[in-house]
Simulated scan of single mutants.
Amino acid sequence: MSQLKYSPVTCVFVALNCLVFLLMYIVSGGAVEDARLLIQFGALYPPLIHWDLGQSYRLLSAIFVHIGFMHFFSNTLTIYFLGQQIERLYGSVRFFFMYLLAGLMGNLFCLVFSPEVIVAGASTSIYGLFTILVVLRWLPNPYLQHLGQSYLPLLVMNLVFSLAPGVSLAGHLGGLVGGACLALSLPLHPYGLVHGRRGQLLGLGVYVGLFLITLATVL
């Protein structure tokens, strides 16, 4: 109950992952890696958006769709632990937008740089969360500095793993960029902005600019 009280948005995102995966399993009889099933449940397939902008909802719905049990389990477990930390630091409302906007940027990168690949999973958001924590190392607080420093090797290690076949490097890099922009843009009480007003304008400018550039590729 304490997790639900202090990290309600994290619990909602975890529950959504579980619900979608369970429905996929029931509908498919266990064949949860089938491409048609993934698309049916909201995975990102860039040609669909190029043909019909009404399919753009997939840029967000794909965050909650996973390819196989291990993909689902590892991502959901990571969200559970990372999400609690960030939600308690930033509050539920800011965490809600951080999670979705980091994932959105990751999927926008996939739309541009992986235009023929089916993309699904919360890892776009997760890389954003990792980066948000790493950026906190620049705040004048020993605990936050240690927390951010401790996640830096983990972020680098996961980026190396992103080079493996079948892994969406574009999505992970997009989530990282999105997370960095959000960490600069949103203040952390009581420390304020990580790099002041200029950093906030830079973060917002880069995020909005990349959003518009990627949007222009499908118009």
Rank of each mutant, 00 (worst) to 15 (best):
P8A: 07
I26H: 08
G42I: 04
H50K: 15
L22E: 06
S150A: 10
L144S: 06
L210G: 01
Y191V: 05
H146C: 09
F81Q: 10
K5S: 13
S125K: 05
F69A: 15
H189L: 09
L129G: 01
L108C: 05
M70V: 14
I49G: 01
S168N: 11
F21Q: 02
R58I: 12
L210D: 01
F130M: 07
G171S: 09
P47R: 07
F95E: 00
S74D: 03
L136N: 01
N75Y: 02
L82W: 02
G29S: 11
V12K: 06
Y45F: 15
F41P: 01
L215R: 08
L144C: 11
G203A: 11
L182W: 09
F109Q: 01
L215V: 11
V218P: 00
P153N: 14
Y45C: 07
G128E: 06
A183Y: 03
F97I: 07
L204K: 07
G54D: 06
L111D: 05
S56Q: 02
L37S: 10
L212A: 13
Q145Y: 04
P187Y: 10
V160Y: 10
L104C: 13
I79F: 06
R94L: 14
I132C: 02
L204W: 08
L188K: 01
G166Q: 14
N141H: 10
T10Q: 02
H146P: 00
L104K: 04
T214L: 03
L38S: 04
P153E: 11
Q55D: 03
N107I: 04
L89S: 07
L193R: 09
A35W: 02
G199Y: 06
V177E: 02
V112A: 10
C181F: 05
C181E: 10
R94A: 15
F13R: 05
S92F: 03
Q84C: 13
F73A: 15
L48D: 08
A183D: 09
R58G: 04
V156E: 04
P8E: 13
H172K: 12
Y6N: 13
G209W: 09
L193M: 08
L204D: 05
L169S: 13
A35G: 08
F81Y: 15
L53N: 11
R94F: 12
L188F: 07
S125Q: 14
P115A: 12
F69S: 06
L163I: 11
G203M: 01
L22H: 07
I118F: 00
H172V: 05
K5G: 00
Y207R: 10
V119L: 07
V112I: 14
F211H: 05
L44E: 02
V65F: 05
V20F: 14
L48A: 11
V206N: 03
N158M: 15
I118A: 09
H146Q: 14
M70W: 12
A35Q: 08
R58M: 12
V119D: 06
F95K: 00
S2K: 15
R198N: 14
S168Y: 06
G178V: 02
F95H: 01
L89E: 05
S168C: 08
G148V: 09
L38Q: 12
G42E: 03
T131S: 11
G203L: 03
G29R: 03
G178M: 11
F97M: 13
R88F: 06
I132E: 01
L169D: 02
S2L: 15
G175K: 08
A122E: 04
C110A: 15
G166L: 14
L212P: 02
P142H: 09
G106T: 04
R94Q: 14
F72H: 10
G174V: 03
P8N: 12
A15H: 06
L100K: 00
V12I: 15
